[in-house]
């Protein structure tokens, strides 16, 4: 005899990942490590910005970098060459985001003794916003060529970020990018987010970004 039974669950598909992320976050806090989840579109200049940020912070802190991409180890090699800090490449195997498990594997691979770890998530404004990586700081980068309306089109990633960086300000003369409007759009989605506009290429306003991290790390 066979019978069909219905098992009631009412369980969010993100629930398991959220629990693992929470555990990872409290583990990081105990070890006094600040993990920064960096999200943006492809081509926003994440890697360039990180290189410049890391070079400004590496005398003060032990820094590690995890580069997540669908394939290739180009970013990890570039960051290692240009900063000299510990870096590791994570492959998502076709997936468009990192989850807490993949992040944990990356952290295990990086090893101990680090104060600050940047996780460069897959270039994508949609999926990474939905999966909690266990990071202590969520950061989104929006580059000037992408246009100032991205916070309206991809609200979730701006809602969950503690820090929104507007990058490539050196390109402002060539694009119709309304900085005030952009700040207002971000504020309407997330009044608590810090918004800092920089150019990693010219170094414009990078001090403010560096100081934001120094302040954040002093709060550990």
């Amino acid at each position: 005899m066979q019978q069909v039974k219905t098992i009631l669950l009412s369980k969010s598909v993100f629930e398991d990942n959220d629990a693992r992320a929470e555990k990872l976050r409290s583990g990081l806090k105990e070890k006094n490590i600040c993990l920064v989840n960096v999200m943006s579109s492809p081509g926003s200049g994440k890697t360039t910005l990180l290189i410049s940020l890391i070079n400004a912070l590496k005398q003060k802190y032990n820094i590690g970098v995890m580069e997540a991409d669908i394939d290739s180890d180009k970013d990890a090699v570039t960051v290692a060459e240009k900063t000299g800090v510990r870096s590791i490449q994570l492959h998502t195997g076709g997936m468009c985001h990192l989850d807490a498990d993949m992040t944990k594997q990356g952290l295990d691979g990086l090893g101990d003794g680090l104060d600050l770890i940047f996780l460069e998530n897959v270039g994508n404004l949609v999926c990474p916003a939905e999966y909690d990586t266990g990071a202590n700081v969520d950061m989104v980068i929006l580059s000037v060529p992408e246009g100032n309306d991205k916070p309206l089109k991809y609200p979730l990633v701006f809602q969950k970020s503690d820090l929104a960086v507007i990058s490539k300000t050196d390109a402002l003369p060539y694009f119709n990018f309304n900085m005030d409007e952009c700040r207002e759009y971000i504020r309407s989605r997330n009044p608590d987010a810090s918004v800092i506009a920089v150019s990693a290429k010219t170094g414009e306003n990078m001090d403010e970004l560096v100081n934001w991290f120094i302040r954040k790390l002093s709060e550990r």
């Binding site: 005899m1 066979q2 069909v4 039974k5 669950l9 969010s12 598909v13």
Partner: peptide
Amino acid sequence: DQVIIKDISAVFDTPEQ
């Protein structure tokens, strides 16, 4: 904004009466 697994219907063997 939810993505929820509500329920699962599964087939079980029951002992012969």
